[in-house]
Amino acid sequence: MSESDRILTLRLSKADWELVERLAKSQGYTRAQAARSAIALGARFAEAGHTFNITRAVLVLEYMQAAIDVIIARDHGDVVPQLRAAAKERLATFHG
């Protein structure tokens, strides 16, 4: 630990502890690394004055995807197979 590092001890609910453990396991991190990552992302988001409603975000994403699907299928149906293949390739490349 360097002189600039600080130690923070905190108490987590069982649900939050399990969440940190799942994140650590899925990312190959220690629990401490997972907690630091979550704090870094979440704190900066909150510091900027943002809030996040996961249900609304998913609804907006699904709405946009459905709209794009309808428009492309209607106006450019010939490219749908290529788009699906490209999406699967990107999923494998960027999301393991």
Rank of each mutant, 00 (worst) to 15 (best):
A86D: 06
Y63L: 13
V79L: 02
E89R: 15
Y29I: 01
F45Q: 09
E62S: 07
V70T: 08
Y29L: 09
A66H: 08
A40C: 02
T30N: 03
A67W: 04
I68F: 08
T30W: 02
L12M: 12
P81D: 04
A40E: 14
F94W: 06
F45Y: 15
D69T: 15
A34M: 04
R56G: 01
G42V: 03
R44A: 09
A24W: 04
R84G: 07
M1A: 13
L59I: 02
R11W: 07
L41R: 08
I54M: 03
A48E: 13
E62M: 08
K88A: 15
R11L: 07
D78P: 01
A86G: 01
A40G: 05
I71C: 04
A43C: 03
V58L: 12
V20M: 08
A38M: 14
Q65S: 11
A43I: 01
G96H: 10
S2T: 14
E18Y: 09
T30F: 00
L83M: 07
I72V: 15
T93A: 15
A32E: 11
A38Y: 04
A87T: 05
K88V: 10
L61I: 03
V80P: 01
W17L: 15
S2A: 13
E62N: 10
L23Y: 09
S2L: 11
I68G: 00
V70P: 00
H76R: 12
I68M: 10
R74C: 00
L8F: 08
L8T: 06
I54S: 11
P81W: 05
Q65D: 09
T93F: 04
A40P: 00
S13M: 00
A34V: 05
E89S: 09
E47W: 00
S2N: 11
L23S: 07
E47L: 10
R74E: 03
R11T: 12
I68Y: 10
A57T: 02
A57H: 05
L8Q: 07
R6T: 09
E3I: 07
R84L: 12
T55P: 00
H95Y: 13
E62Q: 11
A35H: 02
M64Y: 05
A32F: 01
M1D: 06
L19A: 14
D69G: 09
S4R: 13
H76A: 07
R11F: 08
V58D: 01
H76L: 06
F94C: 02
I7D: 06
E89V: 04
K14I: 13
Q65H: 10
L12F: 09
D78K: 04
V80N: 01
L19E: 09
I7M: 12
S4F: 14
V20W: 05
E21R: 15
A85D: 11
L83A: 00
E18V: 07
K88P: 02
L61W: 06
I7C: 09
I72A: 02
L19I: 03
